[in-house]
Nucleic acid binder design. Sequence first.
DNA 1: CATGAATGAGTTTTCATTCAT
DNA 2: TATGAATGAAAACTCATTCAT
Lengths: 196, 196, 196, 196
Amino acid sequence: MSRKPRALRRRELLDAARDAFVERGFSAATVDDVVGNAGVARGTFYLYFRDKRAVFEALVDEFLARIEACVKSIDLSAPETPVEQLTANIRRVVELALAEPAIVKLALHDATGLDPDLDEKLHGYYERLRALIDESLQQGQMLGMVRPGDRRVMVAIGLGGLKEVLVDAVAGELTSDAAVITEEIMRFLAGGLLAR
Amino acid sequence: MSRKPRALRRRELLDAARDAFVERGFSAATVDDVVGNAGVARGTFYLYFRDKRAVFEALVDEFLARIEACVKSIDLSAPETPVEQLTANIRRVVELALAEPAIVKLALHDATGLDPDLDEKLHGYYERLRALIDESLQQGQMLGMVRPGDRRVMVAIGLGGLKEVLVDAVAGELTSDAAVITEEIMRFLAGGLLAR
Amino acid sequence: MSRKPRALRRRELLDAARDAFVERGFSAATVDDVVGNAGVARGTFYLYFRDKRAVFEALVDEFLARIEACVKSIDLSAPETPVEQLTANIRRVVELALAEPAIVKLALHDATGLDPDLDEKLHGYYERLRALIDESLQQGQMLGMVRPGDRRVMVAIGLGGLKEVLVDAVAGELTSDAAVITEEIMRFLAGGLLAR
Amino acid sequence: MSRKPRALRRRELLDAARDAFVERGFSAATVDDVVGNAGVARGTFYLYFRDKRAVFEALVDEFLARIEACVKSIDLSAPETPVEQLTANIRRVVELALAEPAIVKLALHDATGLDPDLDEKLHGYYERLRALIDESLQQGQMLGMVRPGDRRVMVAIGLGGLKEVLVDAVAGELTSDAAVITEEIMRFLAGGLLAR
DNA sequence: CATGAATGAGTTTTCATTCAT
DNA sequence: TATGAATGAAAACTCATTCAT
C-alpha cells in the first residue's frame, strides 16, 4: 500500500524485528510478529531479507559496527595519556550500550547458540575484538604499562567482565550512570578487587 | 525392550540430550535426536521428562548444583587465609568446567533467550550466585580486605570475566591448565591489569 | 522506458515466456523469469497478458495454428497423387517442428495436466486434427486407398507416432533430416514394420 | 488414530495420491488433497514419503514395473511364432492399461514437464523400453522378419503410437476391447495404413 | 505505457506430543 | 514400561497479481 523508499522500509523492518526479538526471543519470534510490528504484509518481509536469520544478522552487524566505531586504537603520540584514551574508549562503549539496550540484549545475550552460521559470525567478531585488545595489551606490556601475564586469559576476563556489565546495566540491575560504570571498570583494571 | 532401572535410563537420556543440545543447539535439536542418541523410542522420552524443556532444565539444574557445591563460603576462622579459600573456590569451579565442557557450553552459552521460564530460572541462579559473591565482598570490604567500590559492578565484572574464561577454556581457545587459569584470575583480582 | 510498438513488446514477452517455460517447465517458471528474460518490469507483463496461463495459451495457439497451416486437405483433383500430398503434409509438419524445437517441447510435452481449461483447449485442437485425419482416412477407405479398420485406432497410432517422432527429433535423439524422417514415416504408413 | 501396518497405510496413501493427481493434476493437487483422500493427518504423509514428488515417483515406478513385467523378450525357440509372442506382449500391455486407467493417465500423460528430476527418471525408463524394442527390431531385421529402415525412427513411431492408443483408450475415446485394440495395432505393424 | 513495491492467499514442511498396542 | 504410528498446530516461504507512482 504505502509505497516507501527502500531504505526506509528496510529500517522499519529492522526496528520491528529488533522489538520482536527482544520481546519474544529470536527463536520464539516469528516473521509474523515482525511484519505485524512493521505494519506490512508477510511477503514484504522477504523483499528485504532472505529469512529470519538474515534480519537478525543485519541487526547484529549494525550493532557490532557501532561498537567497533567506539573503539579507537591507543595513540601514544596523542596528548591524552593511554589510560585516558582507554577510559574514553570504555566510556563510549558503555554509553552506546546504555543508549541501545534492546540491541545489547540481543547481540550479547540472545545471539548465541541459535544457529551455527550466526555463531560463527559472532565468533569472528569477537575474535577481531579480542585481537584488537590483545594487541593493545602487548603494546602496553612492552611499554611496561601493563603487567605481564597470559594475555589470552587477560583478554577473556576483561571482555567477559565488560559484556556482563553491559548486559546487567541494560537489564536495569546496575546504575545507569555511564560515568560511574566506566570509573568502576577502570578501577578494576587498575587495581583488581583486592585492597592492598 | 531392555528394562533398566529408572534412574539409569534417565541418566542415559540426560546424557543423550546433553550431546544433542551441544551439537545442534537447544532449539534445533529435536526429541528425535535425543532418543536417537539414547537408543530408545520416542515415547519413552516422555516417560522420564514432561517435555523437551524439562530435560534441558534438569541438565542446567544439575550443572548449577555442582557449581554451587564448588563454592564454599569464606570462613574467617579457618586455618586457610580468605585469599587461599577464594583461590580454592575458583580453582574448583575451573576444574569442574574443564571436566564438563559440554555442560558449560550449554549452561553458559546456549541456555539464554530460549524460553522465558527457563531464562527466569537461570536468572534466579545467577542472582543467588551474585548475592553470595556480593556478601563475601561486603564482608571483605568491612574487613578492609576488599577495596571500596560499587559492589554490583564489581560482581558483574568478576562473574562475567569468570564465565568468559570458562567458555573460552572449554572452547579450547585458552590453556587447559586449571592452575594457570586460576592463577591468572587471582592476579586479575589482586591487581587488575595495569602495572604500577 | 523504451516505448515500443505494442506488437513488438508482446512478441518479446512471448519469446521470453517460451524460453522460461522450456527451461523450467510451465509450473516452475515464474512471471519473474519471464519478465527477467524480456528485460521489462513485472507489471508490464500484465499489460499484455491477463495472467501466466494466457501467455502459455497464446504460445500454444500460435504453434497449433502453424501446424494446421501445414496440413492441406487431400485434393483428388490436384495433379499430385494423394500419397504425394500426404507426404508433403507430413514433411511440412516435420520441418516446422525442427525449426521450432522449443515450442514443440512445450506444446507436445509439457502442455498437459497443468490446467483443466488449457487441457480442454488442447484436447479441442487434437480433436480437430483427429477429425481432419479421420475424414481423410474415410475418404481413402472409400476410394480403396486406405485399408479397412477401426479408424479411431488408426488415427491414434498415426498421431501418437508422429508426435513421438517430433518430440524425439527436437530432443536430438533422432536424425535432424526432415526428408529422412518423412520418408521413414511414409514407409511406416505404407507398409508397417514387418517385412513380407 | 487407527494404527495400521506400515505397508497398508503406504498403500492407502499411494491410492489417495493417485486419485488426487488424476482429479486435479500433479501440480494442482496438494498434499492436503492426498491426506484428505486417505483420511489421515497432514504429518502422516511425511512419515511415508519425503514430499509430493516422491509419491508421484513411487506411483510411476510401480506402473512402469508392471508394464515391464508385461513385456517378454521374443524367444525364437518357443513354440509360438515371434509375431504371436509380439501380439501377446502388446495385448498384455493393453490389458494392463485398460485395468489401470488412472495410472496410465498419470504416467503417460501428466508425468512430463513437471520436474526435471522426474523427467530424467521417466526418460530413463523410456530409454530402456526403447532399447528393448530396438534390440528386438534388430534381431527381426537380421532374420528378415522386419523390414530395413532407421530403427530409432521406427521405435519412436511404434512407441508413440502405442502410448497414444493407450491414453485415448483409457480416456474412453476408443473401444475398450483389448482384443480389438491389439488386433488393430498388429495390422498397423504388419501393413501400415495404406492399402496395396 | 512502464515500473516495481506491496500484497496475502496458498503450500509445504517440521516436530513436540499423545496414545493405542 | 516401552514402542512408534499418528496427530495437527505452527511456521516459513513463494509467487501471481495489483496498483500507486
